[in-house]
Simulated assay, not measured.
Amino acid sequence: MDQQRTEGGTDRRILERISEMVEAERGLRAALAAGRIDQSTEHRELKDIEEQLDQCWDLLRQRRARVDVGEDPDGASVRSADEVERYES
């Protein structure tokens, strides 16, 4: 597969999703600072976003690794948050 494919549609959508989640993190921190949410709400929602971010980054790494070895990047799949967390420890 060529690099253009991975930088095209699917990878671009993954990167856009990552950007959206980073903005959501900023929004949560701003909401906490402004007193619109409490700390437990911020913590719970941040944990969920962080898990999703880890999964997106993992998927992107899988796709790029597959391209590097000449495999189809579409063979990569989203792994569970637990599995991704074990790899990052």
Results as ranks from 00 to 15, higher is better:
M1V: 10
D2T: 10
Q3M: 11
Q3I: 14
Q4S: 15
Q4H: 13
R5D: 06
T6P: 02
T6I: 14
T6Y: 12
E7T: 05
E7M: 01
G8V: 01
G8Y: 03
R12C: 09
R12I: 04
R12H: 11
R13Y: 10
L15E: 13
L15P: 04
L15F: 01
E16W: 09
E16I: 13
R17A: 12
S19P: 09
E20S: 11
M21V: 12
M21D: 12
E23I: 14
E23W: 06
A24V: 00
E25G: 08
E25R: 10
R26K: 13
A30T: 15
A30M: 13
A34R: 11
G35I: 00
R36I: 05
R36A: 10
R36Q: 10
I37L: 00
D38F: 02
D38C: 00
D38T: 00
Q39I: 14
S40Q: 13
S40W: 12
T41A: 09
E42V: 06
H43K: 15
H43F: 15
R44T: 14
L46D: 03
L46A: 08
L46M: 06
K47I: 09
K47C: 03
D48R: 15
I49E: 08
E50H: 09
E51H: 14
Q52G: 10
Q52H: 10
L53P: 04
Q55T: 03
Q55L: 02
Q55M: 02
Q55I: 00
Q55S: 05
D58G: 05
L60S: 05
R61H: 12
R61F: 13
R61K: 13
Q62P: 01
Q62G: 03
R64M: 02
A65H: 12
R66D: 01
R66T: 06
V67P: 04
D68I: 07
D68L: 06
V69H: 07
V69F: 04
E71W: 05
D72C: 04
D72Y: 06
D74N: 14
G75L: 09
S77H: 13
S77V: 12
R79H: 08
R79V: 00
D82I: 02
D82A: 13
D82G: 13
E83C: 04
E83Q: 10
V84F: 05
E85S: 11
E85I: 07
E85D: 09
R86H: 03
R86N: 01
E88G: 08
E88Q: 15
E88Y: 14
E88I: 15
S89Y: 13
S89K: 15
